[in-house]
């Protein structure tokens, strides 16, 4: 078999093995590539940060995602929760998928163990799982009265009696709805909650879906977005260099790589935990895989052109 033929007809299992190695090796041996932040992520960080220390403003995190997409989305969940707990921002969590409720539990307990002062129903409130069919009634109902639309939290307690609800009435008290999902659920929030009540919406998405949000970002219907592991890595970095070091957000500083590196040296112990840098570690693997796929494409094309030349010669 000729070289051209051979590269054209590589068994797909060989490609799979190479890919597997490209994913696993960088996870085992850390490469420590730098992360660069982008505008949609910075915008979301700044927007959430604006609610710091206020008891009449909160963010609503919608965890409508499956365990399947956890590798990409879970670092986002953790990073945003850590940002909120560190900066004393009130958080509501909700999910319209039963599996999402378990993810909320996991994420909350994982971050909460590092913040012993954070109290349930005072600093955050988990609305838990609400059936998919109640998505619309709840989204629309929260425009009037959150406590009435959601009714109970995950423990079955009436919302209206909880301390966190003292100064929370409706979407006016929600700084931003952050929809984290592997679907286009964020667009529902735009259609129903934003169009009708004007609440700000942002999304965290898997990389496959990330290109979907650009029309909405341009029109301002999404105020920010986290796209895949890359978005999660950027958010992790922003939380580390600003919130954890007690710095005010500044876009100039975030883009200044030497300043960012200096910040990394002063990080508190808490920020250096493995669970809070998962996305950045994963990005090493992703970088290698992207290069690998580019090499695959180039190889495939070399084979294609050699083949074409051969055919021309034979004609």
């Amino acid at each position: 078999m000729k070289f051209a033929d051979r590269i054209q007809k590589v068994d797909r299992r060989i490609i799979y093995v190479i890919l597997l190695l490209a994913v696993v090796l960088p996870l085992v041996f850390r490469l420590g590539f730098k992360t660069y932040t982008t505008t949609p992520v910075e915008d979301l960080y700044r927007h959430i940060d604006a609610a710091a220390g206020r008891d009449d403003m909160s963010i609503l995190m919608d965890f409508t995602h499956d365990p399947g997409v956890l590798p990409e989305l879970y670092p986002m969940d953790l990073a945003i929760l850590r940002h909120c707990f560190e900066r004393n921002i009130k958080v509501f969590t909700i999910s319209f998928l039963p599996q999402g409720a378990a993810i909320i539990q996991m994420a909350l307990s994982e971050v909460k163990e590092d913040y012993p002062n954070i109290e349930a129903n005072v600093d955050y409130c988990n609305f838990g799982f609400k059936p998919w069919s109640l998505k619309l009634p709840i989204m629309l109902g929260m425009g009037d009265d959150i406590a009435e639309a959601v009714e109970t939290n995950s423990e079955g307690l009436k919302l209206e009696n909880l301390p966190i609800m003292q100064n929370m009435k409706n979407y006016d008290n929600i700084q931003v709805v952050v929809e984290i999902s592997g679907s286009s659920m964020g667009q529902f929030w735009v259609t129903y909650a934003r169009a009708k009540f004007g609440v700000d919406v942002a999304v965290g998405l898997t990389a496959v879906m990330a290109a979907d949000v650009y029309p909405f970002l341009q029109t301002g219907q999404f105020i920010g977005s986290l796209g895949g592991l890359k978005g999660a890595a950027e958010y992790e970095q922003l939380v580390d260099i600003f919130a954890m070091n007690g710095e005010e957000f500044s876009k100039k500083k975030a883009r200044n790589m030497s300043w960012v590196e200096a910040q990394y040296k002063e990080l508190p112990e808490l920020a250096q935990l493995y669970k809070y840098s998962k996305a950045r570690i994963g990005m090493d693997a992703q970088a290698i895989v992207h290069v690998l796929i580019i090499i695959f494409i180039i190889l495939g094309n070399i084979g294609y052109f050699l083949d074409k030349r051969e055919q021309k010669k034979n004609m």
Partner: peptide, 24 residues
């Protein structure tokens, strides 16, 4: 189990890129 299903995507994309992405 869910993550395994989702991670198949990377393998499929890699092989699709190799097999189908040609400068025709």
């Amino acid at each position: 189990l869910g993550a395994t299903m989702f991670s198949l995507l990377a393998f499929y994309i890699a092989s699709a890129a190799y097999k189908a992405f040609r400068a025709r």
